[in-house]
Write a protein that binds this DNA or RNA. Structure first.
Length: 270
DNA sequence: AAATTCTCCTGAAGGC
DNA sequence: TGCCTTCAGGAGAATT
């Protein structure tokens, strides 16, 4: 599924094709995504230039002269650049047609979103309350420590809470907790500042590593999207129930935490 | 306020 | 081979 690194990879891969280019047409084949694709988007967008494409959390912000298109890939979404508007398959819900290419959203499970705002995107309700980007210096162990003092819920919930830090999904939450030796079930307010510093460091480290792997898949935008990308080779615990822990050999456990599958080693993670 | 539950949807996987 | 059931998963909304 597209987590932050894949969204970042998508952003970098697509931007060169659409920056500065004019949107010639909009095709909406299936408006029923997580929220309906707004009516009248075609007349709204037609003729506008794409000024920038940026990632915020797992959102992509496509800015034009008169507003911003907010895209989210949900858990099965993918964006591709096609040389031209070609025949659509059943889950190709949305196209932005440019003069020289077509940007197409495919999303079988339709958890994604295409929204439009004419206000500053950082003020949009979906963006406004997001915490800092995990790869910025604003996000660090001190930040996690400060935001965990009144949280008795598991630390895994804390780092997956977008108001605390934006865009850390299930895979990277599991991985970073393993790499920092923290039990995902441990209450947020029962973790020392030093351990939070290690955790913040590992979150950055694992996201950066995955982004650089995503970079190697850049050319492969046609890749089917349901399965993990190349970074799956580097996963230590995610999806590894029953496998030996890479650190100590004990069997990796799986347990639901906050309605999410969690994988960990009960010897290495305390 | 914090924590938990519900919800959207469909491909994949498992059972028989 | 094929049908039926179950489940995962991002994240906002509703509920406790």
């Amino acid at each position: 599924m597209p987590e932050l690194p894949e969204v970042e990879t998508t952003c970098r891969g697509i931007a060169p094709h659409i920056l500065g280019r004019e949107i010639r047409a909009v095709v909406i084949r299936q408006p029923k995504l997580r929220w309906p694709i707004p009516d009248g988007l075609d007349s709204e967008l037609k003729g506008l230039k794409t000024l920038s494409l940026e990632r915020r959390a797992k959102y992509l912000l496509l800015q034009t002269e008169s507003g911003t298109l907010i895209l989210h890939l949900g858990m099965s979404g993918s964006l591709r650049i096609l040389p031209r508007e070609t025949a659509a398959t059943p889950h190709d819900h949305f196209d932005l047609v440019y003069a020289g290419c077509c940007l197409r959203l495919r999303d079988p499970r339709r958890f994604g979103a295409v929204l439009w705002t004419t206000a500053a995107p950082e003020e949009h309700p979906l963006i406004r309350n997001l915490g800092p980007e995990p790869l910025t210096s604003e996000f660090n162990g001190e930040w996690l420590y400060q935001h965990s003092r009144n949280k008795s819920a598991p630390v895994k919930n804390l780092i997956m809470n977008g108001k605390v830090v934006a865009g850390v999904g299930n895979i990277y939450a599991n991985e970073s907790l393993f790499l920092s030796g923290i039990d995902p079930r441990r209450a947020g307010n029962r973790i020392s500042k030093g351990r939070y510093q290690r955790l913040a460091h590992q979150i950055k480290s694992v996201l950066n590593a995955a982004i650089s792997q995503g970079g190697t898949t850049l050319r492969d935008f046609k890749r089917d999207d349901g399965r993990p990308g190349y970074f799956s080779q580097a996963l230590q615990v995610y999806g590894k129930e029953g496998h030996p822990c890479p650190g100590c050999g004990r069997t990796i456990r799986r347990q639901m935490i906050g309605q999410r599958s969690s994988f960990f080693c009960s010897r290495c993670q305390t």
